[in-house]
Amino acid sequence: MNYVIDIVLIAISAALINNFVLHYFVGICPFVGVSRRVDMAFGMGCAVTFVITIAAVLSWSITTFILIPGAPLSRWIAGFFLSAEAAAKIDLTILSYIIYIFAIASAVQFVEMYVRKFFPSLYKSFGVFLPLITTNCAILFACLMIMANIVGVDNPADAWDLGRSLVLAAFGGVGFTIAIVIMAGIREELDLCDVPKPFQGAAITLIVGGILALAFMGFTGVDSGLKKALTPEPVAQVVVSPDAGQALQLARVSKSLSVQ
């Protein structure tokens, strides 16, 4: 049960509260560049969600099996050259950035080839965005967050497992899609507006993005309210603020959903 709560919290936090684009500012380039039409924005969002999920699997496996001190694979390989004691101390985390970026670049390349060969219609809808994604900050950012939650924890038992990493990445991608599609919808309407000439293009997009970020700040606190509502302890407390009430309502909805 605890695990499920954890997963739900990670998902909501990644998709809404700490939205990748509007809270962490990663993936701003496509957010400004490809958000001109809704269908293109949706294609971009799907491509990012797809690649980010693959990258999460890769980075979790690489970090757990190769990079962290005493990782099984690196220990096994080092065991051929070093004593068992020295091999257990091998710490490759310093190489993490180079390895991640290399893994992402090659994964994108392979995915592009695979999709083009076996799913031509899918390739037509979002394949064109795939090569662009290699240098998308959102992907590397997800990898780094997963690494921080494996390497950065004090207690090895708290390190994230594959499920948590996957949920973080997939819902981060969903959050990116939500943000970019909303943005594209607004920009389609914005074309009909009388925007002052110096502000046309990027400037007005950023200002609208700021207002959007402001709106997404309204989700702050949903996670703590949700946690309170989902924990097995009785939560018969007086609802203090409308914010917490909203969170509780959302928690009830998600609870009833999970029951069904």
């Binding site: 509007l22 809270h23 500012f25 002052p196 000439k197 110096p198 502000f199 990027a202 400037a203 007005i204 997009t205 950023l206 200002i207 993005g209 700021g210 207002i211 970020a213 402001l214 700040m217």
Partner: peptide, 24 residues
């Protein structure tokens, strides 16, 4: 709000627009 995420978007958008305006 200026030190929170929305402030970054707003400030940058306004500075960018102003710079374009001066340029024009």
């Amino acid at each position: 709000i200026m030190v929170l995420p929305p402030g970054a978007f707003l400030t940058f958008g306004i500075l960018l627009g102003t710079l374009n305006w001066i340029d024009s």
